[in-house]
Design a protein around this nucleic acid. Structure first.
Lengths: 284, 284
DNA sequence: CAAGGAACATGCAATTTTGCATGAAGAAGG
DNA sequence: CCTTCTTCATGCAAAATTGCATGTTCCTTG
């Protein structure tokens, strides 16, 4: 049995299809299929039921994947133990989250991090359906979402939002630009909006990303709740009220327990914790 | 990094040389060398220092092997978990011990065991220097030897020895056939001999294996302490004294902790425990 | 219901890996 | 001190693996 073929089984189990698994591994779909077949032949058991819509785990497959995850973790440990000393952790880390958050990270603290970790391979993925993320060294940035099926979560900090409008606009006439996505119905958010928004005011635009909202508000489309870290930097935006932020959202980092222990994941977590204030709090 | 290359590193670390490792893995020495080089390149660290006398672990190599052993164990678990259900455990188990013991096992209880475990691959190795045996799913049968460096040992039972001579010989005129090997100087054995052997009696032959001793005694070369399980079955041998055996040796089974957990090793241990009386005690 | 898309299987050529043969370099033994 | 044995490195042909192109089946969507 070729130990390397376990990678294929793991990838298929995570991505659900041969094609995607092969792409993730950087090999051809046909190769992935043949290597899986070879693995199954060596083990004397069928691990996946093939269908045109994808691969699904059999009972034997579930048992195998459960152990293969452990194998992967040990290999990670080995790589960490050996390559560690010279140039810091190496390998792939996937970072998932909202577009504006990842964009902000990229604009502020990402470059020095990549420089100081030359062997780290960061995959930035915006707005992936949460269900798709399983295992495989990935970290997700989410607001107030409790971890799913045994995910490991730490709170990075509180991100303040405040109400802004464009300097050139007439505040009284402005409609609203508001957030809409799976999180939009959370109590904290609806409560803030209910408190701020008067009945007769119109809703001009919704967006799933605060970066787009900010652009819209800046161009005078309407007023809206924006992360202070973004808005305070923009000279064309004016905050409506002084004092406390209108809304505070807790930012959490979710990690799959299979891979939290890997050094590269730990390093990324540490980086996000250390730079949180700089990235997500308003300056000063 | 090709996970399968860890096998090569493990084999080299256990057998100490590229050639032997390659032979054990069933691949060519040049292939093993190239795969080790590839592994080292992927890890960015040298694992072994090459010399004409063999390969020696570097510090990085030691760290790597420590983890690779864990990887191997998890792969074992995976194979056990998956192939388990149908035809019992599979894989290689090495069984080391004295020639006569392994010979006796082969004559008595080995065939049914091999039949009931069709996927098991048993490697019988007689009289290997003990230092050579490290890791790699091996079990050793030894008398009264305490386990080394964290080996795991269980006592199988007591093997009775008694004094025999050939039916056609004249007991009074017979010299001695005695055991000689690394274990021969153990207190229990020298005590028995001192008690039994009179000064004027001559020492005719020494052998390192009780099977050869038995053949010699049977052919009238001399009298000697023989395992009762062997001697009682031989019509041409006569026991000198009735009653208690002249010598009792405790038979132990040593296993390396890295691999005891593997199902195939467990199955082999269980087999040896269950059949001990039939194999190593005199009939009746 | 038809068309388009996505997913897995398979034949075949190109690439990679492997094994063999040989060479070189040290260790062991007479 | 020389011979012999064992060990690892390397060039080259054979073998195995891989990727590409294509075919087929099923799901989705208009």
């Amino acid at each position: 049995m070729d130990w390397d073929n376990l990678k294929v089984a793991l990838a298929i189990s995570r991505l659900g299809s041969l094609t995607q698994a092969a792409y993730a591994l950087g090999i051809d779909q046909s190769t992935a299929g043949r290597r899986l077949s070879a693995l199954e032949a060596d083990l004397g058991a069928i691990l996946f039921v093939r269908s045109k819509t994808g691969f699904a785990l059999t009972d034997a497959g579930q048992a195998a994947i459960k152990e293969a995850v452990e194998v992967e973790r040990r290999v990670d440990q080995l790589v960490d133990a050996v390559t560690n000393s010279d140039e810091g952790p190496s390998g792939v880390v996937r970072l998932l989250g909202n577009g504006w958050m990842l964009d902000r990270l990229a604009r502020t603290v990402m470059a020095p991090f990549m420089v100081s970790h030359p062997k780290l391979d960061l995959r930035i993925i915006t707005h992936v359906p949460r269900s798709r993320v399983r295992g495989e060294a990935s970290l997700s940035l989410w607001f107030e979402v409790e971890p799913r099926d045994g995910e490991f979560a730490i709170k990075l900090g509180d991100v303040p939002y405040a109400l802004y409008y464009a300097r050139e606009s007439n505040l009284e006439k402005l409609g609203w630009v508001s957030f809409y996505d799976e999180d939009a119905l959370r109590p904290a958010i609806t409560r803030s909006y209910r408190r701020l928004k008067r009945r007769h005011e119109s809703l001009r635009l919704t967006a799933t990303d605060a970066g787009i909202m900010l652009a819209a508000v800046r161009e005078g489309v309407g007023k809206g709740l924006l992360p202070m870290c973004l808005a305070e930097e923009d000279e064309r935006l004016v905050r409506v009220n002084d004092g406390d932020p209108e809304l505070i959202r807790g930012l959490h980092l979710h990690a799959h327990p299979d891979t939290v222990q890997a050094l590269r994941v730990q390093a990324t977590i540490q980086w996000l914790r250390e730079t949180f204030s700089e990235v997500f709090l308003p300056p000063g």
